[in-house]
Structure formats: structure tokens, C-alpha cells
Design a protein around this nucleic acid. Structure first.
Lengths: 346, 346
DNA sequence: CTGAAAGCGCTTACAG
DNA sequence: CTGAAAGCGCTTACAG
């Protein structure tokens, strides 16, 4: 068969109309299952549509209804495993409700992020979700300009944002540090992200609260700053290990940092958890496959993605209430934590 | 300021037209930087547009031009790190050329994959890229129906497809196995994916070729079947280790499998690479952070994504030639491979 | 139940 | 250089 015989453009309601001898209005109604159309006519129309391989143009419909049933999701980079899981949750929920999702990377560059949001504006998306944005407050003006709901996931910028879903950082990290304290650790380091990000600030706060509640002194030298990735964590760990009195446990901002810490600790000839305990945050897939498997705080990533999408759905349906969702983390105890050496030698 | 004062719909060229006292045709031309418009008028129009926060409707333009400047990418799941990296390459290249990308998960279910492709059809995407599809041949009819170019990345289905970019599996795995042979290994296992997938078949072929060229016997008992993920690989590894004469090296279908193998080998009280060498495929991010760091074949994931997008761009521009791109893998030797025990004791 | 008409916001021949 | 007109493929009051 010669493919060039097929028409150069997809079938439209007009084509179906002439094929079935009705007006295109009727075709449109029939295809929407409108009760206004005679049952048999509708049947005939639907059969014809099917037969002609008709696919309604979502772009024409979008123009007519000014609802595109698309959402935009902007991520720092989809290559980040945390982000990818969140997005899979968003996509799932979106698809369940007939929405298509536009994906765009910001590379954590604010200008690019703004540009991406603007491009979503041109696409006339019905809503936007942003994960781990570093832009934060910059959105407010864009938002009111675009008049489209935006929900942020783990917003990195301090300060309140209209709609967001966030992990309960303080509680979760308090629990993680408590776990170390109960094991007998006294010298617990915090290996953070760069300063100024909300989740770092909050996880750090949880760390301090746990120390306080246990009447343990806060030792500034045990605070190290990474960059949320293995490389930065390696350097930070290096410093911690070089301390006159190095920590017996390290609570890391995230699993990526823990990966770097683990590598560096091993390189120093120390063992985890015998010499030093390690706790991460996120519960990335790899946490289960490190040696030893990593104790960490699980973020329900996919669920958070779904939640964000469902929140967006509500907002797109007209809800006016500010949505501020906090989801609890879950401490997953694996094999990277144990009592400190001193404790074991007693 | 009261946000409800702002108009309920975005500004259109008509609004700009009345604001500047020209026709909307002229506005349209000016905004397209058409040389047909008087320089000063154009300037005035552009200023007004800027001032009114005008964002051209991509959906209206799409309807008018029947080019949406969108592409659809269908993935098994974006939560797969391999896929996520590929997609980041696609997105990058797409964005460079002013294309937006729709993302959809198929969950490796053929029906869902078809559904997703149809939904892309309704969105009137200009092109589609599919990663690691299990559907393969099913596309051909859909394709001719949709009349939109499709390029596949690492197509899992045997048989030729019109346009694809694939890793050079045979060559790469031959090289990987050669590396093991040169180290002195004689009993080299292949831990594959399920049968019938093109990349598994090809990697297996490379394995056999390497053995043949080295005049090593092919031992069927050294072939184990996983599922491309750690769990399946663990079971497969179990079997290999239980062999009367277990392998001294395992070449894995992918890094995920290697992760499972590594875990199981450790659980058996054996060391990598002292007792058994391990090679993966993909060079996922984690390969660098396992203990020991994993020797593996690097797939230039992001690059392959870019390549797919660039191929698509050509096709969308009207190219008729069949594109069949093979990109070479690169053996990355890390610390999970060493001479076999026998070799070391001599 | 059905159709003619208007409109969504653009682009682009066509005529001046 | 500029504008009026038609068209892209839908939806949806409005009138019958």
C-alpha cells in the first residue's frame, strides 16, 4: 500500500461530518457523548470516527475552551534520581486525570527557570509544579501575571509560598539524629547543603533540637557544608575526619552526600558503621545497595509528586484556599548505623 | 493592588492592535520580526507587547501553522536512572531548538504505550522519541497513521525500525569481555536480561564473540538470566555461585544487575574483585560509588538523547532518509575487575 | 435533536 | 508597508 495515498492531514470533525451527512456541530457533540444527540446518529458518527482513525485535535480544543489540560513541570534536572521519582508520581496522577505534562529542566539557573516558566505560559498550561526550586519568591510576580496555579515541591527558598508540598524536615531529621543518640553517639556531625536553602536550614534545626533534647552540647566544628552531591560531601567529610576529635556519626543532608561521605570514610581506612555511623536523607534507590546499606530518612517521593498534582488539580478546579502540605519522613534503619566505638569497647 | 483588576485572559494580538492603532495582522508580523513592517511601527508594537506582558499563544499558533513545536517522549519510567539521563539530553536539545517536550511513562505496558502515543497524536506533536520500548513493531502502523516521525532509543524489540539510535552493543560487550579475558579469566559468566530483547541478544552475542576469538569454550551453565534489575540479578547470581565450578568473573547485562550481583556475592562471603570480578553496562551514576567502584561500559546517555532529538529535528525538517545511528560504548575500568584467584596464586 | 454562526488567537496569501 | 479576509479545528450559545 502506498502511504502517500493517505491524506496529508489528520481527519477533522468536518471530514466526519461530510462522511456521515450531518453538521460538524453534531459530530462534535456526538464525540463528546453529549445527550443532545440522537442515539443512532451518535453511534454512526462514532463508528465513522473510529473507522477514519479520527483523533480530536487537543490544540484546537484548547484554543476553543481555553483549557489545555496540560501542566508544566520544571525541575532542576531530571537526571537527579530524587527529582525523577517525584516526576514519575506527578506524571502518573496527571495521566490519571487526562492531563499531559510538559517537562523542562532549569539546571538550577534562575534565569533559565524563569524562561521555562514563561514558555509554559505560552503553552497555556493549566498549572505548574516546580520541584526543589532555588527561585522561590521570584515566582510570585510571574504567577499573578500568568494567573495559573503553581505548586512547589520542597521549595528551597526560605519564606512562605502560596502552595507547596514539603517533607517534614525538622521532625524527620530530629528522629534520625535521635536514632544516633540512642545508639550512644555523642559526637554527631551534620553534613549540610549550602546555606540558605530551606530544607538544609530545617534539617539542621532538627539536628539541633535532637541534641538539645538530649542535653548534648552543640559543637560548631561538627558542622560541615557540602553541596548536596557526593563531591562536595567528600571534601566536607575530609575536614570532619581531620578534626582532633572526629565525630563517631555523620548525619547527612541527603543520600548523595552520604555516598560521598561513605567513599571518603572508606578511603581513610575507616569502617562504616564500626568506626563511624552514617545517616542519609531521601532514601534513593541506591541506599539499599551501598555497602553497608544506608540508614536514611525516606521521602515518599512518588507520593509527594502525586500529592502536588492532586493539589494542582484542586486549584485548577477553582479552589482558593492556600495549600501547604507537609508529609512526614520515615526513618529507615539499615546497616550504616551502630553504637560508637567507645560504646562497644566498654 | 488588587489582582482581580487584571483581565481574566492573557493579552492577545488584538489587544495590542487596539493599543497601538494598527491591525492585528501588522502586530502579528511585527512580533515575528517580519521585514514587511515599518521599523518604527514594529518598535512601537514590540514595546507595547512587552509592556502588556504579552505572551503569544503557542496553541493558537499551533493551530494556524499545524506545527506545534512540541515533541513527545515516551519512556518506560522516568524513575529509571538510565532513562532519566537520556531524557535530560533530549530535553536539552529540544529546548535549544525551541521545542517543548511532553513526557509520558508507559510502565513498560504495551497497551499503555500505545495509549500514550495516541495521546501524543491528539496533542499534534511534531515528532516522538521512545526509549527502550518493548513494543517495537507495533509502532509501524501507528506511525503511518499519525504521519509523524518517531525515533527509538535502544529499541528492545528485535528487527529493524525506521529510525533509531542505539548503543553498539556487540562491540562494547566484546570489549568488556576481552578485558576480563586479558586479565586471565576463563570462566566468565553472562548475567543477562530476559530473553528476546535486542540489547540482551546483542550483548550476549558480543560475549560469545569474545570467547570465540580467544578460543575459550562456551559453557551454557555460565549463562544466567536476570531481569535487568537488582532483584532478578541476585537470584541469577545465586545460581552461578552454586555451580560446581563457579565463574571467576561475571559480565552483567547492565549496572542495575551488577548491583544485585555485587550484593549477593558479598552476602556469600566473597570479595570483589579478589574472588570474583564484575563488569556492568551503562555506567550509571552509582557505578562510581559502589564498593569497589564498578568496571562498566559507558553509554553516552545524554549524548544519545541529544542525538535522537537531532535526528528527529532532521526528520521533522523533511528528511526522508532512514536514520540508523550506532554510538560506541566506552569501557570504563574501575576496581571491580582483577585477575582471577588462580592467576594470582601462581 | 440539529444546524448555522460566532469565536478562541494566531498566520498568511491577497489586494492595495 | 498595511489591512481585510480566510482559515486552522474545535466548542457552544442561539434559534429552530
Amino acid at each position: 500500500m502506498n502511504v502517500f495515498k493517505t491524506p496529508p492531514r489528520p481527519a477533522s470533525i468536518k471530514d466526519i461530518a461530510v462522511a456521515t451527512g450531518v453538521s460538524h456541530s453534531t459530530v462534535s457533540r456526538a464525540l463528546q457523548d453529549s445527550p443532545l444527540v440522537n442515539r443512532e446518529t451518535a453511534e454512526k458518527i462514532r463508528r465513522a470516527a473510529q473507522h477514519m482513525g479520527y483523533r480530536a485535535s487537543a490544540v484546537a480544543r484548547g484554543l476553543a475552551t481555553s483549557k489545555t489540560r496540560t501542566i508544566g513541570v520544571v525541575v532542576t534536572t531530571i537526571a537527579d534520581p530524587f527529582v525523577a521519582e517525584v516526576v514519575s508520581g506527578i506524571e502518573e496522577a496527571a495521566n490519571d486525570h487526562g492531563y499531559s505534562v510538559f517537562l523542562a529542566n532549569s539546571n538550577a539557573e534562575p534565569e533559565r527557570e524563569i524562561k521555562v516558566v514563561h514558555s509554559f505560559g505560552e503553552r497555556r498550561v493549566d498549572g505548574i509544579v516546580v520541584t526543589a526550586s532555588r527561585v522561590g519568591a521570584l515566582y510570585v510576580p510571574i504567577l499573578s501575571e500568568m494567573r495559573v496555579p503553581i505548586v512547589l515541591i520542597n521549595n528551597q527558598h526560605p519564606g512562605e509560598f502560596l502552595h507547596s508540598v514539603m517533607i517534614a524536615n525538622v521532625e524527620a531529621s530530629r528522629e534520625a539524629v535521635n536514632h544516633l543518640i540512642k545508639l550512644g553517639h555523642r559526637l554527631i556531625a551534620y553534613l549540610g547543603d549550602r546555606f540558605g536553602h530551606q530544607s538544609d536550614t530545617e534539617r539542621f534545626a532538627g539536628y539541633r533540637q535532637a541534641l538539645e533534647q538530649a542535653d548534648l552540647p552543640f559543637l560548631p566544628e561538627l558542622i560541615a557544608h557540602g553541596d548536596g552531591r557526593p563531591e562536595g560531601a567528600e571534601r566536607a567529610t575530609q575536614k570532619l575526619l581531620a578534626l582532633p576529635e572526629p565525630p563517631t556519626a555523620v548525619f547527612c543532608y541527603n543520600d548523595m552526600s552520604a555516598l560521598g561521605a561513605l567513599k571518603r570514610i572508606r578511603a581513610a581506612g575507616l569502617r562504616v558503621p564500626e568506626d563511624i555511623s552514617l545517616v542519609g536523607f531521601d532514601d534513593l534507590f541506591v541506599a539499599e545497595y551501598t555497602d553497608p546499606p544506608l540508614t536514611t530518612v525516606r521521602q515518599p517521593k512518588r507520593h509527594m509528586g502525586r500529592l502536588a498534582m492532586e493539589t494542582l488539580l484542586k486549584l485548577m478546579a477553582g479552589s482558593q484556599s492556600a495549600e501547604h502540605i507537609r508529609v512526614p519522613g520515615e526513618l529507615i534503619v539499615r546497616a550504616s548505623t551502630a553504637p560508637p566505638p567507645s560504646e562497644r569497647c566498654r
